[in-house]
């Protein structure tokens, strides 16, 4: 009886402590990431907590659809959580065409953020994924930079 109760006790304690800690971490990461974007105004955040992909398969990703307006400069920033296994990438698509990314595949260079000077009011798609399809935890931020 006693070992059984002890196991339940430890499990329940783990659950009680783990759940609020996770939401707090994401909230802190979002605030830190928004602050790291620079002298811009926060608009949206894109949290992504993903499992690892299957070998040879497409890396899992979190998708968000945003309406972006003409004559506006936006900044997209990506922040990988300290405990994340994979390193996060944020990609911006217009329909199915990649028009911006925090990762340059050709050079292997990462950028913490990029600006996008929008000239066409339309719905765009943001994908957050992790390099090599690893599991990971990250948040992307979209900020307003200026009217063009």
């Amino acid at each position: 009886m006693r070992p059984y109760i002890k196991t339940i006790f430890i499990f329940a304690l783990f659950l009680a402590l783990a759940r609020p800690a996770f939401s707090q971490d994401i909230s802190e990461l979002t605030a830190q990431c928004a602050a790291s974007a620079g002298d811009v105004t926060y608009l949206k955040d894109f949290p992504a907590k993903l499992d690892a992909g299957t070998p040879g398969g497409k890396p899992p990703s979190a998708k968000y659809s945003m309406l972006l307006s003409k004559n506006t400069a936006y900044r997209f920033t990506i922040c990988t959580a300290p405990d994340s296994e994979g390193e996060a990438i944020l990609d911006l698509y217009d329909m199915n065409i990649l028009i911006g990314s925090t990762y340059n595949k050709a050079t292997g260079k990462d950028y913490p953020s990029f600006d996008f000077k929008c000239q066409k009011t339309a719905v765009y798609h943001i994908f957050v994924s992790f390099k090599e399809g690893k599991a990971g935890n990250a948040v992307g931020i979209m900020s307003f930079v200026e009217k063009l």
Partner: peptide, 26 residues
């Protein structure tokens, strides 16, 4: 009415900051 003029996007890196400029235009 809203029409779209198509154009190729352009990437510019200046002082370590990457900017993508859209040349499609509504």
């Amino acid at each position: 009415s809203i029409t779209i003029e198509l154009g190729e996007p352009e990437a510019v890196e200046k002082d370590g900051m990457l900017t993508f400029i859209q040349h499609d235009k509504s």
